[in-house]
């Protein structure tokens, strides 16, 4: 059997985490290539439907990553994201999705090393959790 290679969608904010991802690239830090970055303006614009859609379409994990609290370019978008993600985690199990498959992190613009580390760590975590149930259902 082929080793399980998860599919992870990461919504990253334009100002901090995307810069960190860029920095990881220019610093030649390797991180799992199965994490697919979607750049958004702010984590505060990540509508719960985007997360649920990603899971229903087969993502094994979803990451939302933005600026550190207080750093948000739009002042408080990341706080709004934090509240929303907390609620979203409550309802994910009703869709048959373990709540740990959704992660929220803060990665600042100069945290290239941290970005690569967190990506690796999330990838490992999802591998340990195994394929998402919704993905299996889809396969059937």
């Amino acid at each position: 059997m082929e080793p399980f290679e998860p599919v992870i969608i990461a919504f990253v904010c334009n100002w901090c985490t995307y810069t960190a991802a860029d920095l990881a690239g220019t610093s030649r830090l390797s991180y799992p290539t199965n994490i697919r970055l979607i750049r958004v303006m702010c984590t505060g614009m990540v509508d719960p439907q985007y997360v649920i859609k990603a899971f229903l379409e087969g993502a094994d994990g979803v990451l939302i990553s933005g600026c550190h609290p207080g750093d948000c370019h739009y002042i408080n978008g990341n706080y709004k994201a934090r509240r929303r993600i907390k609620l979203l985690k409550e309802i994910l199990p009703r869709f048959g999705i373990e709540k740990d498959r959704l992660r929220l992190t803060w990665i600042g613009a100069s945290d290239g090393i941290e970005f690569a580390e967190i990506m690796t760590q999330i990838n490992d975590q999802i591998i340990e959790m195994g394929p998402s149930q919704t993905r299996l259902n889809k396969a059937i």
Binding site: V40, M41, C42, H73
Partner: peptide
């Protein structure tokens, strides 16, 4: 253009032009 309004709107009437939900869902 932070898009927070689009995320809170219960009826999808607040739209972020340039990075709207149709674009995002298709991107996913």
């Amino acid at each position: 253009g932070c898009g927070v309004c689009a995320a809170v709107c219960p009826s999808g009437s607040a739209v972020l032009e340039g990075l709207g939900s149709q674009q995002m869902l298709d991107a996913i």
